[in-house]
Amino acid sequence: MEEVRVAIVGAGPSGLATSACLNIQSISNVVLEREDCCASLWKKRAYERLSLHLAKQFCSLPYKQHSSKTSTFMSKDTFISYVDSYVSELNITPRYSRCVVSALFDETKKKWRIEAKNEASGEMESYASDYLVVASGKNSEPFIPKVQGLESFKGEVIHSSDYKCGEPYRGKDVLVVGCGNSGMEISNDLTDYEARTTIVIRSPVS
């Protein structure tokens, strides 16, 4: 069993920032990430035209400001490059392909015991830590609600996390469910590719 001061679950921006702050203070830590890369939601499950909705001065991680040459509302690719350089410069060493299957607190030893499966080797790994930080995010699991008749629908049904660009839907009828940031931007993208787009939402908007 490996012992560290802090165990961090998730190598998204929050998990990476936590590790960076601990590294600066010379506090031992380990970052366990089930995917094979950091910031996987940005790298694997974001549409091509995505950009940050907040100005760059509000989107910096600790100890690293954005370049003065970076646009105010940066693209996802720019942000991904920033995160990759952040990992390198702040000496963060996530352990990828580690799926945490349990985390229990031992009242006797006053330690967290974390069990993680190494998806690359198939072996289980054990960690003991004084503190546990869960930074797995609230959007890590896509959700498609059960809609009556959906199972008999002959067209394609995808979650926004699987959408990349509107080219495959050019000239087609597309229904977008939801008017959050993703729904509105994807609808706009579809329109740019000449898809016939309709949005449905649960609540009235003014």
Rank of each mutant, 00 (worst) to 15 (best):
M1P: 01
M1D: 15
M1E: 11
V4N: 08
I8S: 01
I8L: 03
I8V: 12
G10V: 00
G12V: 00
G15S: 09
L16C: 02
A17L: 05
A17S: 13
A17C: 07
S19Q: 06
A20F: 00
C21D: 13
C21L: 06
C21R: 10
C21I: 10
N23H: 09
N23M: 00
I24F: 11
I27L: 13
I27Y: 03
S28A: 07
N29F: 02
N29Q: 05
L32P: 01
E33A: 00
D36H: 10
C37G: 10
C38G: 08
K44P: 04
E48C: 04
R49T: 06
S51K: 06
L52T: 11
H53D: 08
L54G: 15
K56H: 06
K56L: 03
Q57P: 15
Q57I: 15
C59I: 06
S60N: 14
S60C: 09
L61V: 13
Y63H: 11
K64N: 01
K64T: 04
K64R: 07
K64G: 01
Q65K: 08
S67R: 10
S67H: 14
S68C: 14
T72F: 09
F73C: 09
F73N: 15
I80R: 01
S81M: 09
D84E: 13
S85F: 04
V87M: 06
T93W: 09
T93H: 05
R98Q: 09
V100A: 03
V101A: 04
L104E: 14
D106C: 14
D106W: 14
K110N: 10
R113K: 15
A116D: 14
N118E: 03
A120V: 12
S121R: 04
E123S: 10
E125P: 04
Y127V: 02
Y127F: 08
Y127C: 02
Y131C: 08
Y131P: 02
Y131A: 06
Y131W: 12
V134A: 12
V134E: 02
A135Q: 09
A135W: 09
A135C: 12
S136M: 05
S136I: 02
G137W: 11
N139Q: 13
E141Y: 15
E141D: 15
I144Y: 10
P145S: 04
P145C: 03
P145L: 01
V147M: 12
Q148Y: 03
Q148G: 06
K154L: 07
E156S: 10
H159N: 11
S160N: 09
S160G: 13
D162H: 05
Y163C: 02
Y163E: 02
K164Q: 13
K164R: 14
E167T: 06
P168Y: 15
D173K: 12
D173E: 10
V174R: 01
V176D: 03
V177I: 09
C179V: 07
C179S: 11
G180S: 12
G180C: 07
G183Q: 08
G183V: 04
E185L: 01
I186L: 07
D189S: 03
L190C: 05
L190P: 00
L190M: 05
T191Q: 13
T191N: 13
T191M: 13
D192R: 01
D192Q: 06
Y193A: 12
A195R: 00
A195Y: 03
R196S: 11
V205P: 10
